[in-house]
């Protein structure tokens, strides 16, 4: 028996909107720790890792570890039927091949339930090693989204370089080149508007921009985004989910041959 009651149902709606275009089918894993997902995009270049900790749910019942295969587009369709202020409850019986999403309006005057068919999803769970990153950049998530969008109108790949001076995003294409430099800036009214550049070693990596643009669909989840870079590792783009966990995107770099 599985029963997860999420008062801030909009979080789950936002999570699905953020990942449904990158990943088609995925297993949601439910355990005492929380509700999680790990999945790669079809080309195995990007990986999504979601964690919603059990403590973040108003009610969390998961009698045994369970993995539920879902088509994310279909799940997003169902969650779109929930209001932004609705409480969302996920329910599944042991051995059932369906999951039920129950939506309650804040005033309890409208209660809906949507039952979705589960599916078998072949997926391999990857071990993500703990890593010391050469550089960690924290910036407003809207600013990062703006940079990715702007650069993708010029080129297909982005070079992200972190030095003492700050973080530089560069691209080039048929019509020309573009460089955006963000310097550390902590003299802001609100902490979420700050740009913080922590650098242990200078690092410069090249990535396909279209994936970054897909990751920025996580922007509604958090005011800030954290970008962690190491020369031998995939970049991590992380959106914290307040009080609950995180949505992390990993992207493998492009490397000169």
């Amino acid at each position: 028996m599985l029963e997860l009651r999420l008062v801030q149902g909009s979080l789950l709606k936002k999570v699905l909107e953020a990942i449904k275009d990158l990943v088609t089918d995925a297993n949601f894993d439910c355990s005492a720790t929380g509700f999680s997902l790990q999945a790669m995009d079809s080309s195995h270049v990007a990986l999504v890792s979601l964690l919603l900790r059990s403590e973040g749910f108003e009610h969390y019942r998961c009698d045994r570890n369970i993995s539920m295969g879902m088509n994310l587009n279909n799940m997003a369709k169902m969650l779109k039927c929930a209001g932004n202020d609705d409480i969302i409850t996920l329910k599944a019986d042991d051995g059932s091949d369906t999951v039920t999403f129950m939506f309650e309006s804040p005033t309890q005057d409208k209660i809906s339930d949507f039952e979705m068919k589960l599916m078998d999803v072949d997926s391999e769970h990857l071990g993500i090693p703990e890593a010391e990153y050469h550089a960690i950049v924290r910036m407003p998530s809207t600013e990062f989204a703006r940079i990715c969008k702007d650069l993708s109108s010029i080129g297909d790949t982005v070079v992200i370089s972190v030095t003492k001076e700050g973080v530089k995003f560069s691209t080039s294409g048929d019509i020309g080149t573009a460089n955006v430099v963000c310097r550390q800036n902590t003299t802001v009214d609100k902490p979420e508007d700050a740009t913080i550049v922590e650098m242990n070693e200078p690092v410069s990596l090249t990535f396909a921009l279209r994936y970054f643009n897909s990751f920025t669909k996580g922007t509604p989840l958090s005011n800030t985004v954290t970008i962690s870079l190491s020369s031998e590792l995939p970049v991590v783009v992380e959106y914290k989910i307040a009080e609950m966990g995180h949505l992390r995107f990993y992207l493998a770099p492009k490397i000169e041959e």
Partner: peptide, 14 residues
């Protein structure tokens, strides 16, 4: 040219 690596090149299967 540069080669696009896959995630499995960095993270092993469990």
């Amino acid at each position: 040219g540069s080669k696009q690596y896959t995630i499995t090149r960095f993270f092993g299967k469990q």
